[in-house]
């Protein structure tokens, strides 16, 4: 089932087109890989999808009566600063709506459940600034999942992680996706991750875009054309 139809999307910055005539669909419980060189405007497309910046041409048509809740997992950077909060409290930061300064019973239960499925329960009382890269990314994922989203954006969420941490993170996403019909958009440069977990792909280039099933992705072309691919 399609939940988002991107039609004829074009974004222009200071008289320069980032891209034009981008067409793609987002299907429920599917995994869309968003691919392209650095600077081509992948994050810009995501921000536009969230309604943070306007489109120059085209439109995003949502097929879920405006009920979508989008959550976001950022990229891990080793130099990322964090405060010495407990992991439990760091994950709970995304309870950010409403007037009540403390967490309700249901929210505490939800938090406990998400900590469990992201394999964070045993370290929930340790400090986030001492956690490893993989643990930190799982905490970011937990932050996103706590909000009970139906669309999850992984913005190079597996970059800079070792293989164990990388697949550990993606396995949590896959398991959650199967249980809760979660739709995922993953921005990635990692061909192996994409081929293993994505269903469709959207390739953005300066000259246009390409959308299709992940099997049709011409990996050889990426390797020679894109300097930033692994």
């Amino acid at each position: 089932m399609m939940i988002l139809d991107g039609k004829d999307i074009g974004i222009k910055f200071d008289d320069r087109w980032l891209y034009q005539k981008v067409n793609f669909q987002l299907n429920q419980a599917h995994n869309l890989a968003l691919i392209g060189d650095n600077g081509v405007g992948k994050t810009t497309l995501i921000r536009a999808m969230l309604g943070k910046i306007p489109l120059t041409t085209g439109e995003f048509k949502w097929y879920d009566d405006g009920q979508h809740k989008i959550a976001y997992v950022p990229q891990y950077r080793p130099d990322m600063q964090a405060f010495p909060l407990r992991i439990r409290d760091f994950v709970g930061l995304t309870f950010d709506q409403g007037l009540r300064p403390w967490l309700s019973k249901e929210e505490k239960k939800r938090l406990q459940y998400i900590l469990a499925i992201t394999n964070l329960t045993s370290i929930a009382d340790q400090r986030i600034d001492r956690a490893s890269g993989g643990e930190r990314q799982r905490a970011y994922l937990a932050q996103a999942l706590v909000q009970n989203p139906n669309v999850l954006i992984l913005d190079e969420a597996t970059a800079n992680l070792d293989n164990v941490a990388k697949y550990g993170l993606m396995d949590v996403v896959s398991a959650y996706q199967k249980n809760y019909q979660l739709t995922t958009i993953m921005v990635s440069h990692d061909i192996d991750i994409m081929q293993r977990y994505a269903d469709e792909y959207l390739l953005l280039t300066r000259h246009g875009s390409e959308y299709g099933n992940i099997e049709q992705l011409d990996v050889a072309k990426l390797r020679e054309g894109g300097e930033n691919f692994v």
């Binding site: 976001y72 930061l93 995304t94």
Partner: peptide, 21 residues
């Protein structure tokens, strides 16, 4: 105190808050 929840996310993790709030 009334803005405690959004303020906490805004201050302690701006990156994700800019998407969530």
């Amino acid at each position: 105190l009334m803005m405690f929840r959004p303020l906490r996310h805004f201050a302690f993790d701006y990156t994700t808050a800019s998407f969530s709030l």
